[in-house]
């Protein structure tokens, strides 16, 4: 893949994703490899351990009320027989309605993480995202992110898995 500057890359992601959404379903049926994706949610619970120290742990998200912190984890596996091209895996996840992204929680080993504040039209690093507030352009806050995108930089060999995650707060 040709290296692009960040602005160009952001536009590229938006445009390509739109095109992929229309054309790639049919193409997938003839490919040799197949990536399976799973999406799970857990609640981040704070508790005090026996030493009296506040700790955090993941529990089932069966009981979720406003103010709770949630972690979404997206796992993917190459269930096919062929290698997935290096740098081709792009995971796009809109921040769910009624939630807001918690700054610094997006994670993905071996990925580059970009954000969008305009419903996925453009992506960039968080510090470069701009929004208009009271008529003036300003850096978007994390709670204004609308979409998160991970680009997996390596090839994915058959049987190999990857995982990304992010946390939100239920409004």
């Amino acid at each position: 893949m040709t290296h692009l500057n960040k602005d160009t890359r952001a536009r590229w992601h938006g445009a390509v994703n739109f095109v992929l959404g229309i054309f790639l379903t049919a193409a997938a049926t003839s490919a040799a490899a197949q990536v399976e994706v799973a999406n799970s949610v857990a609640k981040v619970e704070t508790y005090v351990d026996q030493q009296g120290v506040a700790q955090r742990r993941l529990v089932d998200a069966d009981s979720v009320v406003p103010g709770d912190e949630l972690r979404y984890t997206i796992s993917f596996t190459n269930a096919g027989e062929g290698q997935v091209d290096a740098g081709s895996i792009v995971i796009t996840n809109p921040v769910p309605d009624s939630t807001e992204y918690i700054d610094g929680t997006a994670f993905g080993s071996g990925t580059e993480i970009l954000f969008s504040a305009d419903q996925g039209v453009t992506f960039d690093l968080g510090e470069n995202l701009k929004v208009v507030k009271q008529g003036a352009e300003a850096v978007a806050s994390a709670r204004e992110y609308t979409t998160i995108q991970w680009q997996f930089l390596s090839a994915l060999e058959p049987g190999e898995t990857g995982q990304v995650s992010f946390n939100v707060k239920l409004k």
Binding site: N17, L24, A28, A31, F76, V90, L156
Partner: peptide, 13 residues
Amino acid sequence: VTLSYQVNSVNQT
């Protein structure tokens, strides 16, 4: 969540 990728330069999702 949507995951797009390529195998031998063929797009899939």
